[in-house]
Design a protein around this nucleic acid. Structure first.
Lengths: 335, 335
DNA sequence: TTTATTTTCGCAAGCGCTTGCGTAATGTGG
DNA sequence: CCACATTACGCAAGCGCTTGCGAAAATAAA
């Protein structure tokens, strides 16, 4: 049998309301009674029933973290820092893995609608369900991470892929690679258009013109990267460098190159995505765009918390630029 | 404003209880009224308030997954399959990352005590808080994964490290490596003793005698593996092979070996831990013990579900043997 | 048709907590 | 010592749902 507020109240010889106020540090209870109540509560290892509390106060101290994919180390990193931030503010995290399935995402939305969580952050994923999200936006706290909605309507924290790719292209051009292939995700995702625009901008600014045919769409898996390479080298104009814009495709791409008997960076330069354990152990040491995962997590929780507490005026958008970390894979020998 | 049971009841012209029964597929409501109620509920996008439901029914359909560390791909894999299993049974997962901090674990336990979750699975971690766990075992559903408690008291699903290491040693001996170092975690964890016993068993059975000095304790990080190597080669008797028993130490170990200018398997054979993306991209291709992560997740949820529903008679312990996946890193050239 | 049986449904209590409001207790100044 | 302002506390309603129980309605048996 669980021990309840009522029990504590009886033991302390006060009313339930007094116990509640005492334990929640609210004013309206004398210092002596408060001490007494706290003591009794501790002695009896009293744990407030969070459901009851949530029901009464309309607050659960839980947030949903809706993840488009759990295989990406970067996403895990974001979750970790979110968890840390949440814990510090006494929030729990509900993990929701959608595997990029809009239906699942929809179903997880009902966590919000059913009052099970105070807010939700969506990490990655396509924009598809955007209308859906909006629909649910009665008064719900929602933050988007690395996800662009067409209406540009949600509070979001984003990696600036455009500038990231721009940097990467620039760097490769400087290294005298000028046939640069871009491996990205399906263009029905606005995020991918961002990348492409960065690509074109860099080319244009350098006075070269970019080749549409060097842009390859593939899914975000390791296999996707692998296949991308096989496709690309069928091309008329074979590139001399690759920029991979997802973590796992980076791995697959490198594998494909090496399996094909080619060398990095001698045959192809590579700029990968994500400064994580994967890209740190692969050979050769990989030049990568490093996503600010920790910040993404932390800031998104900050925003969410403010939204929950109605402390956020209007929509906020934070854009964080990725770093280009230069290693061997993109350093031309003939330089 | 949220739409409630009462609203639906009013719209349908029935009592709240009838709506509740209709929507929960309980008997005691006619087919026609049920249809009508469901229709109305759907039209109005009604979402039952899970807190209220949980409070009334004493059931939250949430479970806590308490993770000792989030950096291990194997653990993430377990969580993934847990999530999948849970989702199929309409359970949500609360992610709790303890970073091996017993205090945090303790605090997460209150999720159980405060009725916020119906059960909890603990993945990894030391036994430290075992008394604590027991204390909380009023009537709580708890499953342990890859964690040994001294009292052997909890329903658990375990990887059989003993047989795993046994296989690894055997294999290495067959390859004529007979100075095998074992890199494991701190021996204050029973799990580690398991590993060591497998190590000794294999040696004994083969008629060799094992060298205590070749057993190295280190923390489970990449750096831990790296340092382990540096320590080990200071030894009088330098080993010719390594068995690393954690995922990240495996990575660090290999890095240290390569950084030291040594070659695998020429200078040292290596058997690593975990058949994951990390060990699949590292070079050379690594012989590993493959943990049955998917099963660990699935089975632990099965157990937990039964515990929650009081369908589990007594304590259950499931032990799963890891596979030895043989690749280049342990194949002697002089064979 | 009448009685017995089953099914359908409403009533009301209760899950454990929070919170507005009113009253009793305490403290302050004259 | 009294009037007044504070502060400390209890009362009771209410959060949105579930569920046991009894009454009414529908169905089956006699």
């Amino acid at each position: 049998m669980q021990i309840t507020l009522k029990d504590i109240a009886r033991m302390a010889g006060v009313a339930e309301s007094t116990v509640s106020r005492a334990l929640n540090n609210k004013k309206g209870v004398g210092e002596k009674t408060r001490k007494k109540i706290i003591k009794i509560a501790e002695e009896n290892n009293y744990r407030p029933n969070q459901l009851a509390r949530g029901l009464a106060a309309n607050k659960t101290n839980m947030i949903a973290v809706v993840l488009s994919e759990m295989d990406s180390p970067g996403n895990i990193e974001i979750v970790k820092s979110l968890e840390e931030a949440a814990e510090a503010d006494n929030y729990q995290i509900i993990l929701c893995n959608t595997k990029n399935d809009p239906e699942k995402e929809k179903s997880y939305l009902s966590l919000l609608e059913s009052n099970q969580v105070d807010g939700a952050v969506f990490i990655g994923g396509k924009l598809v369900g955007s209308h859906l999200l909006r629909a649910s936006l009665d008064d719900n706290a929602i933050v988007l991470v690395n996800r662009l909605s067409e209406e540009n309507f949600f509070t979001s924290v984003l990696t600036d892929y455009s500038i990231g790719i721009y940097k990467a292209v620039n760097h490769l051009l400087e290294q005298n690679y000028n046939n640069i292939a871009l491996v990205c995700g399906s263009r029905n995702n606005l995020i991918e258009e961002e990348k492409i625009s960065g690509y074109f901008n860099a080319y244009q600014e350098a006075g070269f013109k970019a080749d549409q045919n060097l842009i390859f769409e593939t899914d975000s898996s390791r296999q996707g990267g692998y296949n991308a390479f096989l496709e690309i080298i069928k091309n008329d104009s074979v590139p001399d460098a690759f920029i991979s814009t997802k973590e796992l495709t980076t791995i697959g791409l490198v594998e494909a190159i090496k399996t094909g008997g080619f060398f990095i960076p001698d045959d192809f330069a590579v700029v990968g995505y994500g400064d994580n354990i994967l890209t740190s152990i692969i050979e050769p040491p990989l030049t990568v765009l490093s996503e600010p995962s920790k910040e993404l997590g932390r800031i998104s929780f900050d925003y969410l918390l403010k939204l929950i507490n109605d402390n956020l005026e209007g929509q906020q958008i934070k854009v964080l630029a990725p770093n280009l970390i230069i290693r061997d894979s993109s350093i031309s020998k003939y330089n």
